[in-house]
């Protein structure tokens, strides 16, 4: 049986194809903003090519992510919490909690057997999101890889506020004008992103921190991950396919539906 999961996020779309419980293909592309349907189709075709599978051979397609309803060829949709749970049960079966840090959402869920125990998502603040870091990278004329390689700011390093990303950006630009380097400002921005993301972790009232898996696009940002470890006060496991976890979860769900 072949199933597919599509994680249509704010910045990128990820495709995963599963055959009999194993990942046989994946693809990633830009999510396309207002043109999400076309972006999903493009990534979908690439994923099929990568897997060497014809579209007609795919038994079921399930979409997740903030743009899940924009994937017109999906048979069903599931929410991000459920796809994270399914993924983590597959990628890291002994995990007791999962943090999904993406461009448009930070989600934390505890694992209770095959179900979600408790779940929290970021509220109305974009400061802890990947979209904020991507945006600031562009403003600071740094690549995401350069941002990822930065160290944590020292005690006397510049800092920006974590209450509003627009004001954080203005503050960052002011710091640049006062002579701070783009790298120093980027480190400060990454720090507040981690602080905000850790507030979601702290929102979980029933601790289940024995073994925490971190997934989502921000797993690729080492500076963010290191800062989050400090502010959340815990270490993480970053499983293989972490960036594709949402799509993996959706594909697994599709397989369950077909049984």
């Amino acid at each position: 049986m072949i199933t597919a999961g599509i994680d249509m996020g704010y910045e990128s779309v990820k495709i995963v194809l599963l055959k009999d419980g194993a990942v046989v293909g994946r693809a990633k592309g830009e999510s396309g903003g207002a043109g999400r349907e076309a972006a999903a189709r493009k990534a979908w075709e690439e994923g099929l090519r990568n897997a060497g599978i014809a579209e007609g051979d795919v038994n079921r397609v399930v979409a997740t992510g903030s743009g899940k309803y924009n994937v017109e060829f999906a048979d069903d949709q599931i929410t991000e919490g459920l796809s994270a749970l399914k993924a983590i049960r597959f990628l890291c079966p002994d995990a007791t909690a999962v943090i999904d840090a993406g461009a448009d959402e930070t989600l934390v869920a505890t694992v209770k057997g095959e179900r979600i125990g408790e779940m929290a998502v970021n509220q109305k603040c974009a400061a802890g999101l990947g979209a904020f870091l991507s945006y600031m990278a562009r403003r600071l004329e740094l690549t995401l890889d350069e941002m990822s390689g930065l160290g944590r700011p020292g005690a006397d390093s510049p800092a920006v506020n974590d209450g509003c990303v627009v004001f954080a950006e203005l503050e960052a630009l002011s710091l640049l004008n006062q002579g701070a380097s783009p790298e120093e400002v980027a480190a400060a921005v990454t720090e507040i992103a981690a602080v905000r993301a850790s507030s979601v972790v702290n929102d979980i009232t029933v601790p289940a921190w024995n073994r925490v898996a971190l997934v989502g696009g921000l797993t690729k940002n080492t500076a963010f991950v290191n800062a989050l470890k400090v502010h959340a006060g815990m270490d993480f496991v970053i499983p293989g396919e972490a960036e594709y976890a949402g799509a993996v979860g959706a594909a697994l769900f599709a397989a369950e539906q077909r049984k």
Partner: peptide, 18 residues
């Protein structure tokens, strides 16, 4: 403060988590 789609999405997630 209302972000309607986000709120409804949270309700969906909550329901699916159960």
């Amino acid at each position: 403060d209302l972000d309607e789609l986000r709120f409804l999405n949270q309700l969906d997630s909550w329901m699916e988590s159960q």
